[in-house]
Design a protein around this nucleic acid. Structure first.
Lengths: 245, 245
DNA sequence: ATTATTGTTCCACAATACGGTACATAATAC
DNA sequence: GTATTATGTACCGTATTGTGGAACAATAAT
């Protein structure tokens, strides 16, 4: 189904450049204008894109992808199961609680409950981050087979954004072993002045599908609070895994 | 491009039933098993779905749709532009601030900053609601041409969930006229005990693409706070529209 | 043991996606 | 002002490609 492939590529190209016209897309994708036009018409008929007002037809996404996204990375409505636990975690800690899934060698923040404190750590929803340095990312990595970890490691190196810290391969392996032992991951090297603790959420298959984390400003972080956060996360993750199983 | 249409239907069916097998999908969609299987293989190759572990092959979504969704309803990164204003609004009001887009005759909550108060209004991200009774929905409707409003009205009536309040058509028209005059919409008939004020965000084309709202428990709501919220929203919406233009 | 259901492969047929060419309109250059 | 490029859209004959019935092995239900 070549046409499907092309149509999906067109869809993603529209997402990246919206609002955008046929010709620009065609040159971007190195495809004949006619083919792109056909794909656009089909995607419009299917309700995934719409022409924005104006003389020259510019294409933009509808929210149809959003309907899917709500369910992506979540068998059985991950969010519905996890959200109550996130509320409880915040109540118990008064700190910011994050839920992230992994996609394309990165973690993606899909839900967040914020600390009530004036000083707090805020990340944008939908934001992406390296798996090698975040608490959520390392918690997930620790539950993946070694070869997949390697793939992700390489992919992260390739991406290699400026100023990004990438741990040595053996240092990472050692840390992941420790994470497996403890059951949770921590980081203070992701955002300056933020200490985070994370645990993986594994579906019924045992594969990690998401991770929960608690972030605190280092000024509010102590040995005691770190222990408390780790314990709470482990407890809730256990209950969540139970519910998903 | 019939195949594209079918593939997209399969994709959405997978989203609705994941994890799900070929046969169930085929009967669900009333399509020959072979066609569905072909579509699944293509979607897998394209990276939109993956087989979940297990003997019998069950299909589930990857997070690829999520990548699109982040950009849906937002040319020029709507969220990036709006988020700082939401932060400022919450700082100024200490109340919950919502950002919603509209899709398929409903409003969808895509970003939320919560009130620091113990008593606060919390809606789930990605949640959907009628446009006819929400502050965000009415703010958007007031900026749409009359015929589109009618389409949405009819669609909402058809959906007709149990216990859902649907205003009379002329009452709605009158209210929307008032919203156009004031520039903002209010509601207290959406969630019991919650008063909300909303304004539309119109892109460069003048079409409404999203809406901002402030929600407060009625116990904390007064004539003064309502005036304040409306003014702040209008001010910020103006600045946002400026930036988008 | 028997039956129903599932995921998967094969294949001949024709439907349909393909992309070159063409045309009209709107920005741009001169 | 005209000339020129770039853009969105329509047409059309060819063969590439998607189509769905039938058959298969393997599991689950009876």
């Amino acid at each position: 189904m070549n046409s499907v492939r092309k149509a999906l590529l067109v869809l993603e190209a529209v997402a990246d450049h919206q609002p955008v016209g046929v010709s620009e897309l065609a040159s971007q994708l190195a495809q004949p204008k006619t083919s792109v036009q056909r794909a656009l018409a089909t995607l419009r008929d299917a309700g995934w894109i719409r022409p924005s007002a104006g003389e020259r037809t510019r294409w933009e996404l509808t929210f149809r992808a959003g309907r899917l996204a709500r369910k992506a990375g979540s068998h059985f409505g991950l969010r519905e199961v996890v959200l109550p636990h996130m509320e409880e975690l915040r109540r118990q800690t008064d700190e910011t609680v994050h839920l992230a899934v992994y996609d394309d060698s990165e973690v993606v923040l899909i839900e967040r409950l914020e600390s009530p404190h004036a000083v707090r750590h805020v990340e944008p929803l939908g934001g992406r981050a390296s798996m090698l340095v975040t608490a959520t990312g390392k918690a997930i990595l620790a539950n993946l087979p070694e070869d997949e970890v390697n793939v992700i490691y390489e992919a992260t190196c390739v991406r290699e954004e400026a100023g990004m810290f990438i741990p040595m391969k053996d240092a990472l392996a050692q840390e992941l072993a420790e994470v497996r032992l403890l059951g949770y991951a921590t980081t203070s090297s992701w955002r300056d002045g933020v200490f985070a603790t994370g645990v993986a959420i594994t579906g019924p298959s045992g594969n990690p599908i998401a991770a929960l984390s608690i972030s605190t400003p280092e000024t509010r972080s102590s040995d005691e609070s770190r222990r408390k956060h780790a314990l709470l996360l482990l407890e809730h993750a256990g209950q969540i895994n139970e519910k998903l199983g």
